[in-house]
Computed example of a mutant assay.
Amino acid sequence: MDTSLLLTIGFIHLVALASPGPDLALMLRFSARRRAALGAASGIAAGILVHSLLSLTGISLLIQGQPLLFSLVRLAGAAYLGWLGWGALKASLTPAANRLTAASGLPERGFWAGFSTNLLNPKALVFFIGLLAALVGPEVGWLTRGLLVLELFLLSLLWFLALAWWLSSLKVQARLLAWSRPVNALCGLLFCGVAGSILWLVVGELARS
């Protein structure tokens, strides 16, 4: 077991988790209902689990090595993130209601939204390919690889569960409610911005090929 490798990747992953992105935007969108927020947190962690498994087994590299397949994956992800962004922007134009978002309070709804958002985010795919391919060489045994998958999943789960609990607290919700329209607009712009940057990269690559 390579303890230093586990600590290094764990620290880098924590920094990435704390960075703003589609996962954080989704947590804000579901924060009005705690059960849905906790479901979204679990879904995001499950998506990270799949990314970790795909990267450590080399499947993600195979996908990236097929230009057409990789472009289709990124286009699907951009379309999904764009759809989420459009929904958030529409919500920002409606009068403030009793909740930040009209998303269902069912935890299953939150789970599948979190899972899909993370799994279909091409930038997450590229991040895990870059992180794990750069630091996990062929000499790393399967015990360490298994512990890495477990570490990345547990860190993600604990981080997003804590974030869901905090965002859905009464004090935070009171502040978010007062800023519901700007928050929805910010989430929408973030989703659409990520989707647009992905489309720009794919179109540029296709134009050069």
Rank of each mutant, 00 (worst) to 15 (best):
L7T: 14
I9C: 09
L14V: 14
G21I: 03
L24Q: 15
A25I: 08
A25R: 06
L28C: 11
F30H: 14
L38T: 10
G39S: 06
A40I: 06
A45W: 07
A45N: 10
A45S: 13
A46H: 02
H51S: 06
H51V: 06
L54R: 05
L54W: 08
T57Y: 02
I59L: 15
I63P: 00
S71I: 00
S71N: 11
L72D: 00
V73H: 02
R74Y: 00
A76D: 05
A76Y: 08
A78D: 03
A79P: 00
L81G: 10
G82W: 04
A91T: 11
A91L: 13
L93N: 08
A96E: 13
A96N: 10
N98G: 15
N98Q: 14
G105Q: 03
R109D: 03
A113H: 09
G114W: 02
F115W: 12
S116G: 12
T117N: 15
N118F: 01
N118C: 15
P122S: 07
K123N: 10
K123L: 14
K123V: 05
V126T: 02
L131W: 00
L132W: 02
L132R: 01
P138W: 02
V140D: 05
G141W: 09
G141E: 11
T144F: 08
L147F: 09
L147E: 12
L148N: 06
F153A: 14
L155Q: 10
A164K: 09
A164L: 12
S168E: 07
Q173D: 01
L176P: 01
L177S: 08
W179Y: 04
S180V: 04
P182D: 08
A185Q: 04
A185E: 01
L189W: 06
C192Y: 09
V194H: 07
I198E: 05
L201C: 00
V202L: 03
E205N: 01
A207C: 00
